[in-house]
């Protein structure tokens, strides 16, 4: 260990060069994102099959979701993707203040997303639409309740909704943890023009979470948007 007289800050001992370390880190994150893709993939398969099995249930269920709130969250996530990209940009330039600023904005947007999601979930639970623990009472939803023949299919839609968005929200929470760590590290002055791959790699993760939402929004919220009078 003592031989490393020419120690480069941020370079782990088992790598030959910074370039090699960065390549490994980026590749590792991309491979991890493949794993994530397949993780969500199982749910997308379930979605496809159940949507084809219960088209009416999915149309009706989609109408129960709040498009303005979902749309707002879409915009929030897109903006956060931009701010994350800018954080990466300023980390590459080695501008610490701007890096921290954009990381903070991204973190704030993450919380905005999660808060909106929380209110959406609460309203579903309040309307007795949570499909578990015996709390699903579709007859009490809206003025007339969900039609009897659709109650079961709508329930299928709702658990897919909760599972997919819940898993997505979990990834947002993990993302918030990553952002906080990055802000802490940036504050300590750990990132330089030469060493910024943690920011870049976290950026990849953040954009991936954004991409998942890009698909979830139309699949869940907009599926029944064109059908009038199905909801309440």
């Amino acid at each position: 260990m003592a031989e490393h007289a020419t120690h480069v800050p941020g370079l782990a001992h088992h790598f030959v060069s910074m370039e090699q370390q960065k390549e490994a880190g980026t590749l590792g994150m991309w491979i991890f994102l493949l794993t994530e893709l397949m993780f969500f993939g199982g749910l997308f398969l379930a979605y496809t099959i159940y949507r084809t099995t219960y088209p009416e249930g999915f149309l009706y269920g989609s109408h129960l979701l709040n498009v303005p709130l979902g749309g707002t969250n879409t915009v929030v996530l897109i903006v956060s993707s931009l701010t994350m990209a800018m954080a990466v940009y300023y980390s590459q330039l080695g501008e610490k203040k701007k890096l921290i600023f954009f990381l903070l904005v991204t973190l704030a947007l993450c919380f905005v997303f999660l808060i909106i999601k929380y209110f959406e979930y609460m309203s579903k639970i309040h309307d007795h639409l949570f499909p578990a623990f015996g709390t699903y009472h579709p007859s009490t939803t809206g003025p007339h309740g969900i039609p009897l023949e659709l109650q079961q299919p709508v329930r299928v839609f709702l658990w897919i909704y909760f599972l997919m968005t819940g898993l997505h929200a979990l990834h947002m929470i993990v993302g918030a943890g990553i952002l906080i760590t990055l802000i802490y590290m940036a504050q300590k002055g750990r990132f330089t023009k030469q060493y910024n791959s943690p920011v870049e790699i976290s950026g990849l993760y953040w954009h991936f979470v954004d991409i998942v939402w890009i698909f979830l929004f139309p699949l869940l919220y907009l599926t029944g948007f064109h059908v009038s009078g199905a909801g309440h």
Binding site: I31, L34, T35, M38, F39, G41, G42
Partner: peptide, 11 residues
């Protein structure tokens, strides 16, 4: 391991 395991995880 990378492409298969996540699917059983979600399952």
């Amino acid at each position: 391991q990378i492409l298969g395991t996540p699917v059983v995880a979600i399952t």
